[in-house]
Amino acid sequence: MTEQLLPADFLGYQSLLPDEEQKELLALREFLASEVRPRVNAAWAAAEFPMDLVPRFAAADIVGRSYDWEGRPRASRLFTGFQAMELARVDPSMATFIGVHGGLAMGSIMVLGSEEQRQRWIPSMMRLETIGAFALTEPEGGSDVARGMRTTARRDGDSWVLNGAKRWIGNGTFADVVVVFARDVADDQVKTFVVEKGTAGFAASKIEDKIALRTVQNADLTFSDCRIPAADKLEGGNSFRDVNKVLKVTRGGVAWSGVGCQLGAYEAAVAYAGERVQFGKPIGSFQLVQDLLARMLGNVTASLGMTVRISQLQERDELRDEQAALAKSYVTGRGRETVAMAREVFGGNGIVLDHDVIRFFTDAEALYSYEGTREMNTLIVGRAITGISAFH
């Protein structure tokens, strides 16, 4: 099925997928082109999430493909990586929405929940009837949240009582369930809870005035003597090591989204280079523009090769923390370069939404920072290289 490969997949990595998964990926590409792409710039400009697309995403059956579930066999890790790439290639905000819901929130319940808890929440989340969020970062704790988590949990009979605040929580304004991490005052360990929308003492407010991933509804969350049933503490979420079990898997997904963001910017630049005429010629005929395009393609190809290998390691359950960290930091770092070069191709036209590139340019900044900054991920890699921890 080489005729279905994207031109930017210069080395043909998609051909590593079996034909059935390639057909499914093509169907997703067509769905995104017809149903999602026409909406993304208006949603980004308005900083509003188009909720009417949620049933269409459900009908496209793209949520939770990396999990084994009753009557629905798990897709390969390579396929779900390409799926994240295709989403971000059209809109990194939509990729983030699906990644937060299907990766972080559902992933926490799948990895850390009991069988009863999985049965209670996962089926409706698969159907996007219940939307999830993932609440780890705090107003005063980003990179140091493992040690500095201030949100607390106190066991009180058959309930837990949560107090504290979380920040930058994607899907947080409209999520039906939020996976919340809090430090148990009894043993000082980070525990994992599911808080349902409408619970007394729980409130969410939208973070305004963002210039990246504007469609994503990031929220500030507060918990004021928020009482939840003991049954809503995830059975396997008893330390920050358990949190890392989820993050190791999802960092690979962020790397794939970083590839998609680069692809979207690169493809916009290639199209513009063929259409824009200056000095009587398409600008694509100029050496300096061709140099930019070739350098962008090099970044895309190197990033795609790294993420493909990450997915292959995940498939064999051999992926190490430092490998996921390297992929996330490298791909999003190259992403910043790629979107900047794409923006350069457009000249002054690159700062308006009409040509898409400014959306990818700003969204790349969020991908670069969330789920582990470049600096924190490089320290994870550096520890693996030297055997010495530089965390302080």
Rank of each mutant, 00 (worst) to 15 (best):
R127C: 07
S205T: 03
D209A: 10
P55R: 05
R77F: 04
Y67V: 09
F134V: 02
P18S: 14
A273H: 05
E86A: 06
V180W: 15
P73S: 07
L5C: 01
T378M: 10
N299I: 00
P7S: 09
F193E: 06
P38L: 01
R29N: 05
E138T: 02
A95S: 06
R77C: 11
G347W: 03
A273M: 08
R65Q: 08
Y272K: 14
M306Y: 08
R127H: 10
S224D: 09
I131R: 15
G198P: 05
E21K: 05
A59W: 04
A8E: 12
R316N: 15
V100D: 03
A58H: 09
D321S: 11
E365L: 00
A327T: 12
E318Y: 12
S76A: 03
A95H: 04
R65W: 01
R336L: 15
V357S: 06
V178A: 11
A302C: 08
G284C: 04
T386Y: 07
V145L: 14
Y330A: 01
N238I: 08
D184W: 04
G260P: 07
K245C: 01
V90G: 00
T96R: 12
V246L: 02
S93N: 04
R383P: 03
G132I: 04
K233Q: 06
F10N: 10
E371S: 12
V194F: 05
R56C: 02
R155E: 15
K197S: 12
F57H: 09
G64C: 07
Q312H: 12
V308A: 15
D68F: 11
F10Y: 06
R74T: 13
Y330N: 08
